[in-house]
Simulated scan of single mutants.
Amino acid sequence: MFAVYADAPHPDDPLAGLVVGERPEPQVPDGWVPVTVRAASLNMHDLWTLRGVGIKAERFPMILGCDGAGVLADGTEVVLHSVITSPGWTGEETLDPKRTLLTELHQGTFAETVVVPAANVLPKPASMSFADAACLSTAWLTAYRMLFVKSELRPGQTMLVQGASGGVATALVQLGRAAGLRVWATGRSEAKRALAEQLGAHATFESGARLPERVDGVFETVGEATWNHSMRSLKPGGVIVCSGSTTGGNPPADLQRLFFLQLRVVGSTMGTRAELADLISFMDVAGLKPSIGAELPMERAEEGFRAMLGGETAGKIVFTR
């Protein structure tokens, strides 16, 4: 079958391992279902896979793609939940120490067909396109959990989104605005700041700029490059919710500020199936649509990877079949 996959890890030149070609048809274990993929979106996780981060060398070749939307054999249109728990796990999916994402242990969604546990498919609303649905189960679910499960922020409070042009960040802007928070965002360029304002940010600022006042919560996916600014931007008792560190994972701790101002630093990873169901319902009711910066046929996947690698994102990059 047609697939976009990583043939081997390439830490210093990730696109050297990217192949657009053919892979064997997947086997379907008991309790799993095949899904004909209609759309899948690109995530930073896919670049990490190409580099060999979070995946063992013996797992290659690996079909890329953490999330997507498609059709079951009976014609049911579905959204995929990409967190796969270990056999017998009964607690919250994200807390399973042996959980995996698609592309870590199991083949991903950049293919004609993907095979997932039957519990990992959810109905797609008729009002939502396959391209929009393909953005939800990684970037948008991560943003939903950060804001509504982890931050404890309330409508009327002020949130700051760092680096607001990527998939998680644009989702945070849209979700925060829809939920009644005052949304501020930072961006490296005028175009990135303009996108955040277009999506609902009440104000935008250059990266590292002094803010008019301190905020109740900061949402971090950037890491070292913005961490000091995030810490300085918080009110006493404020919270940083972190789900990524694209510029490095070893920021200075600033412990004096942390304890003296009684700040909270909260980690957040992906989300549960129940949270994905709530996200889908919320978006349907609120009429929210993901910001899609590029929609490409899967055969042109390399163009999307090059754009993400170069930081040329303006929302999600989606591949369609």
Rank of each mutant, 00 (worst) to 15 (best):
S165T: 09
S165W: 01
S165Y: 00
G166Y: 02
G166T: 04
G167D: 12
V168I: 09
A169Q: 07
T170E: 01
T170N: 02
A171D: 03
L172I: 08
V173F: 03
V173T: 07
V173R: 00
Q174G: 03
L175H: 05
R177F: 00
A178P: 01
A179K: 00
L181Y: 14
R182H: 13
V183Y: 06
V183G: 02
A185R: 09
A185L: 12
G187T: 12
G187R: 13
A191C: 01
K192M: 10
R193H: 10
L195I: 05
L195D: 06
A196S: 10
A196W: 10
A196Y: 02
Q198C: 04
L199H: 11
L199V: 14
A201I: 00
A201F: 03
H202T: 09
H202L: 07
F205T: 08
F205D: 10
F205G: 09
E206L: 08
E206G: 09
S207V: 12
L211Q: 13
L211H: 10
L211S: 10
P212I: 07
P212V: 06
P212Q: 04
P212W: 02
E213L: 02
E213Y: 02
E213M: 02
E213C: 03
V215A: 03
V215T: 01
V215D: 07
D216T: 03
G217H: 07
V218L: 01
V218Y: 02
F219A: 01
F219M: 15
E220I: 07
E220T: 08
E220F: 05
T221Q: 00
G223Y: 07
E224N: 13
E224S: 10
A225E: 10
T226E: 01
T226Q: 06
W227P: 02
W227Q: 03
W227Y: 05
N228E: 15
N228C: 09
N228H: 14
S230T: 04
S230Y: 04
S230D: 13
M231K: 02
M231P: 03
R232N: 15
R232G: 14
S233E: 10
L234C: 00
K235W: 03
P236M: 05
P236G: 06
P236L: 10
G237L: 09
G238N: 11
V239H: 05
C242L: 09
S243M: 06
S243E: 08
S243T: 12
G244H: 04
S245E: 05
S245Y: 12
T246Q: 07
T246R: 00
T246F: 00
T247F: 09
T247G: 12
G248M: 13
N250E: 14
P251G: 11
P252K: 10
P252D: 12
P252G: 09
D254S: 13
L255F: 14
L255S: 11
Q256K: 08
R257P: 05
R257C: 13
R257V: 14
L258V: 03
F259N: 00
F260L: 15
L261R: 15
L261I: 01
Q262G: 13
Q262Y: 06
L263N: 04
L263F: 07
R264P: 01
R264C: 01
R264A: 10
V265W: 12
V266C: 11
V266A: 11
V266E: 13
G267I: 02
S268A: 09
S268R: 05
T269M: 10
M270D: 01
G271K: 05
